[in-house]
């Protein structure tokens, strides 16, 4: 399991995280939600060992701050928000970068093909990464991450997928597909920690939700307990309505358009869209 206690992060003079506690168990999809600038990505960067932090964080009992990169790489894969490539690699070559054995020289071509099929990109092997659309690139990166930690359990030790906004540039079909891959990974014994913006996908796929506000945990628990109109309105500063799907299966989380502040054209000639409308 991934366990973080009292995580503080300062970037420059600004304190981004003020003592975050978080536990992500194997077998579950844990979602981190919160508004822009609340510290979600910083938290993930701390938990991947990328940036320095105060507090304690362990992955399967291994101290994240003190671990060697290869130790962590054997236990977790990380999907970044976006990834640019410096050189013209083919899709096959990008996904192969995820194969630890592959980069050491062995032939892991079959796993590359399987991972690409899993993200619905079978047949894209010979395409150049840079010529793909943003959503396709993101799925190629996910295939690379899957290659790195293909089996959710390694010698009975769970491995983790760290996903930073995995569905942000995907169409609805592929959003569902990626979330199903995450849920399936958890169902087979692995762990998933995902930063999410889409509250409905969070409600549908997360087993555990951590709501972050201004670098602190505002609420954590099962989706129905965290995704309440009271919590969300406080944290997102936007009136929300919580309902159930028309067929009664699952939650619906919607902005309350009637109660939302209309755009004030007189005071905001330039129209600040993000503040006035509720967005996501």
């Amino acid at each position: 399991m991934l366990k973080a206690e009292n995580i503080h992060v300062d970037l420059g003079r600004k304190t981004i995280l003020h003592g975050i506690d978080l536990a992500a168990h194997a077998g579950r999809v844990t979602a981190i939600i919160g508004p822009n600038g609340s510290g979600k990505t910083t938290l993930m960067r701390a938990l991947t060992g990328e940036i320095a932090f105060q507090g304690s964080a362990t992955l399967n009992g291994v101290d994240i701050a003190g671990a060697q990169p290869w130790q962590l790489a054997a236990m977790r894969g990380v999907l970044p928000q976006s990834a640019t490539l410096a050189f013209p690699f083919t899709v096959h070559e990008v996904v192969r970068l995820g194969l630890t054995s592959g980069i050491m020289g062995a032939d892991g071509g079959d796993l590359v093909i399987e991972a690409l099929k899993a993200v619905d990109l079978g047949g894209f092997e010979a395409r150049f990464y840079q010529e793909l659309s943003g959503g396709e690139q993101q799925r190629v990166q996910l295939a690379r991450v899957l290659c790195q930690v293909w089996e959710p359990l390694l010698n009975d030790v769970p491995r983790f997928l760290f996903l930073d906004e995995p569905v942000s540039s995907l169409d609805i079909k592929h959003q569902l597909q990626i979330m199903r891959i995450a849920a399936d990974y958890a169902a087979r014994g692995g762990g998933v920690l995902a930063i999410m913006h889409d509250l409905n996908l969070t409600a549908a796929f997360a087993d555990h939700v951590v709501l972050i506000s201004d670098g602190r945990v505002f609420a954590a628990g099962k989706p129905p307990d965290v995704l309440t109109s009271g919590n969300l309105e406080r944290v997102y500063d936007c009136p929300m309505r919580i309902g159930s799907a028309p067929d009664g299966n699952g939650m619906l989380v919607l902005p309350d358009l009637a109660a939302a502040q209309p755009i004030d054209h007189q005071n905001h000639a330039s129209g600040d869209w993000n503040d006035a409308t509720s967005g996501r």
Partner: peptide
């Protein structure tokens, strides 16, 4: 090869950057 994806991803792939 790992650095091609950026320093952060290279580290995620297990490289002591």
């Amino acid at each position: 090869n790992a650095m091609t994806l950026g320093e952060a991803t290279a580290q995620h792939l297990g490289l002591n950057v």
